[in-house]
Each structure stands twice: as structure tokens, then as C-alpha cells.
Design a binder for these strands. Structure first.
Length: 153
DNA sequence: GCCAACGTTGGC
DNA sequence: GCCAACGTTGGC
């Protein structure tokens, strides 16, 4: 079982939205590296839900992968902001995964806090200039984060 | 709103 | 295959 972190702008889709919907397809990813990580996800993997581009960027909850990568239909919709004419029915370029809500943290782990932990040096999220919206949480980092997250779940 | 960092595109 | 130009992300 692997651990991943996924970013979302809360104005577009927040942890509360996921809590309300319970399950949601994570569509609109248009970055190859992020897509490749989504393809690696297995059912049951843990997702750390991160709020980006907002007042207090933070890990705000968790979710579970409930459906593995499958074509993201928004890439075929000309009216969608995620429309990609280079994606065809034969060779879908983009995928989505389905997530199931798991928990909302009462005390989110803010980016400021995470940056203050020396043990997290090298973690992609806290690296300067990291814009990746889907990233693996490698074992050493999960080891550090786990107690702070699972104790709240 | 600014801007640094990064990814993608397309001309050559 | 290089790289300049452009677009986007996301913290501040």
C-alpha cells in the first residue's frame, strides 16, 4: 500500500466537498508526471489531501483510492477547461482516479509547520519551487507524518 | 498582485 | 535535439 499527496485549490474542490460527496473522480490533471503517479495508484492507497493556493496551505485530510486510473472524460469535452484536442478515444492522454473520503483533520498540518520540520528535508512538497500536484509520500516521510495524521482520523 | 520556478510547445 | 518563448503553479 502506497501513500500519495494530492493538491487541490479549496475554491475549486475542498476536503469539505469530498466529505460531502464521499466519492469523487479526481479529474483535470494535465501534467505528465502527476498523471504517471496516478497510474501507479492501487485501490486502497492512502491519499493526503492538500489545500493549495489559499490562505493557509495545508494537509487537511485523507482519502482512499477507490478506483484506479481510468480515462478522464473531461479531456474530450470541448467546453471543459481541461479539454485536450490531442487526446483521442483510441489513445486517451489523461486519467483520473476515484477517491473515497476518509478523514478531515481537526488540526491541519500547515505548510509553515511542515517546513519547520528538519526531518522532512527532501520531501517534494516542502521543496522550493515544487509545483507537482500529485506526488508519492516515501516511507521516511510517511513515518514522520503518520502519527500526526492517523491520530486525528 | 507579484514573481520564481517549472513544464510544455514549437521553430529551427 | 536544442532552446527561447510562453503559460501555469502556488507561496508570499
Amino acid at each position: 500500500m502506497a501513500i500519495w499527496l494530492m493538491k487541490s485549490e479549496p475554491d475549486a474542490f475542498s476536503i469539505n466537498d469530498l466529505k460531502h460527496r464521499q466519492r469523487e473522480n479526481w479529474d483535470g490533471v494535465r501534467n505528465f508526471q502527476a498523471r504517471n503517479y496516478m497510474r501507479e495508484m492501487a485501490k486502497g492507497d492512502i491519499i493526503l489531501f492538500y489545500h493549495s493556493s489559499c490562505k493557509v496551505p495545508a494537509i487537511v485530510g485523507t482519502a482512499i483510492v477507490s478506483k484506479t486510473a481510468h480515462p478522464d472524460p473531461s479531456c474530450w469535452d470541448p467546453k471543459s477547461p481541461y479539454y485536450d484536442p490531442k487526446s483521442t478515444a483510441e489513445t486517451p492522454r489523461w486519467v483520473q482516479v476515484e477517491l473515497a473520503f476518509e478523514s478531515k483533520l481537526t488540526k491541519p498540518l500547515t505548510l509553515t509547520l511542515l517546513k519547520s520540520w528538519p526531518e522532512l528535508d527532501g520531501f517534494p512538497l516542502t521543496k522550493k519551487g515544487s509545483r507537482l500536484s500529485v506526488m508519492p509520500v516515501d516511507e521516511p516521510y510517511w513515518h514522520i507524518l503518520k502519527p500526526h495524521i492517523l491520530s486525528q482520523s
